[in-house]
Computed example of a mutant assay.
Amino acid sequence: MGILSGNPKNEPLHYGEVFGIWSFLFTSQACVAAYQTMLNHAGDGDLKELIHEAITTSQEEMKEVAELLKENGVGLPPSPPARPVADLESIPAGARFMDNEIAAKISADIAAGLITCSTMMGQAIREDIALLFGRFHGKKAVLGGKFLRLNKEKGWLVPPPLHLQPKED
């Protein structure tokens, strides 16, 4: 039996796994802080619900990866403080993020998160790490679909130029 056989949780993490997990946690912490701020700026009720879901999902993921890092003796990245709740009306109109901007930013973050999860799945040699990020990937894909639907329903989606084939007579 080699060092990489048996229970994956007893196998050491390789440097790529450590860096990827640590970076995932660091980035997720920053996203949660940003989403808490964006929540203060959001006016649309449907958008607010999805922002709450994005925050909750990220916090659940952060808890799991923080525990994984601790179990493997890896120090955690610094965490930004939680953002206070603010009254939307107290934010001047010119200083506010618009709902469509918030939805676009979170949608882009979800797309980047999908790539991160796929990368971690591909570079992991521990099955539990690959499966963990596979689960995160699935959750992000579902949440991304919800944001896509919201962007379409609200008219916030700005498609790139559409390629239409001319019809032949």
Rank of each mutant, 00 (worst) to 15 (best):
residue 5 S to C: 07
residue 6 G to D: 05
residue 7 N to S: 11
residue 8 P to L: 02
residue 9 K to M: 13
residue 10 N to L: 11
residue 12 P to S: 06
residue 13 L to A: 08
residue 16 G to K: 05
residue 19 F to N: 13
residue 19 F to E: 15
residue 22 W to E: 10
residue 23 S to F: 03
residue 26 F to G: 06
residue 27 T to M: 02
residue 29 Q to W: 11
residue 30 A to D: 13
residue 37 T to E: 13
residue 38 M to Q: 13
residue 43 G to E: 07
residue 44 D to G: 04
residue 45 G to F: 02
residue 46 D to R: 15
residue 52 H to S: 10
residue 52 H to D: 14
residue 54 A to L: 01
residue 58 S to F: 00
residue 59 Q to T: 13
residue 59 Q to H: 07
residue 62 M to Q: 14
residue 62 M to W: 00
residue 63 K to E: 15
residue 64 E to T: 13
residue 65 V to Y: 00
residue 65 V to S: 07
residue 66 A to W: 00
residue 67 E to F: 00
residue 67 E to C: 02
residue 68 L to F: 03
residue 71 E to V: 05
residue 71 E to R: 15
residue 71 E to I: 04
residue 72 N to F: 02
residue 73 G to R: 04
residue 73 G to M: 02
residue 74 V to K: 08
residue 74 V to P: 09
residue 80 P to D: 09
residue 83 R to E: 14
residue 84 P to I: 06
residue 88 L to M: 08
residue 88 L to A: 10
residue 93 A to R: 12
residue 94 G to Y: 03
residue 96 R to P: 08
residue 97 F to V: 09
residue 97 F to M: 11
residue 100 N to F: 07
residue 101 E to L: 04
residue 103 A to C: 01
residue 104 A to E: 13
residue 106 I to D: 04
residue 109 D to M: 07
residue 114 L to G: 08
residue 114 L to H: 04
residue 119 T to H: 09
residue 120 M to S: 05
residue 120 M to E: 08
residue 121 M to D: 06
residue 128 D to L: 01
residue 130 A to G: 08
residue 130 A to H: 00
residue 131 L to R: 12
residue 132 L to M: 15
residue 133 F to S: 10
residue 135 R to H: 12
residue 135 R to V: 11
residue 135 R to A: 14
residue 136 F to Q: 09
residue 138 G to T: 07
residue 139 K to S: 13
residue 139 K to E: 15
residue 140 K to N: 10
residue 141 A to E: 11
residue 142 V to H: 06
residue 143 L to N: 07
residue 143 L to I: 05
residue 144 G to N: 10
residue 145 G to D: 09
residue 146 K to W: 00
residue 149 R to L: 07
residue 151 N to Y: 00
residue 152 K to M: 11
residue 152 K to E: 12
residue 158 V to D: 07
residue 159 P to H: 03
residue 164 L to G: 10
residue 165 Q to C: 11
residue 166 P to F: 01
residue 168 E to V: 13
